[in-house]
Amino acid sequence: MSVQYVPTVADLNEIVEQVWASYLDPEGVNPLIPVESAADASDIHASVSITGSWHGHVVVACSNAAGKLAAAAFLAMEPEEVTEADLIDVLGELANIVGGNVKSMLPAGCFVSLPHVVSAPAQANHWPAAVQVCELAGLWSGESIAFSMWQSRELTGEAAA
């Protein structure tokens, strides 16, 4: 097998910073502050799956409040106006943007799935057949958000995303 470049937490951080600069904090005054772990970033999970020469998932997990803040910033509305449909759209698009940029760093010939958004996931670990490659956890306006990459185990263990 050839050696493949797998994006690191530094790569994830760079992509996430660009998302903040573009949509969530264009003025540069409210950054995502890194923390060791974002245990309460578990109300909503948005993910895309990557297939092809690399198999895995890119996940955006956050608290309800963080999700509403993100949707409000994205859609230029007040957090209390955010509907569930807005939340699903925006977090799905965040997963798509982060996942698409991760894909561009992987060997050629990968594909990104359409985003999949789950509210109130019962368990933190969705993919028993995948291992976490890296995670970037942070606080944004005091609310938890985490970005993570999961790589599917070789061969038969591929789980449905």
Binding site: F74, L75, L114
Partner: peptide, 12 residues
């Protein structure tokens, strides 16, 4: 764009 959120941003 299939994302309504992205369409809104671009429309704006």
């Amino acid at each position: 764009d299939d994302s309504r959120a992205m369409r809104l941003i671009l429309r704006r």
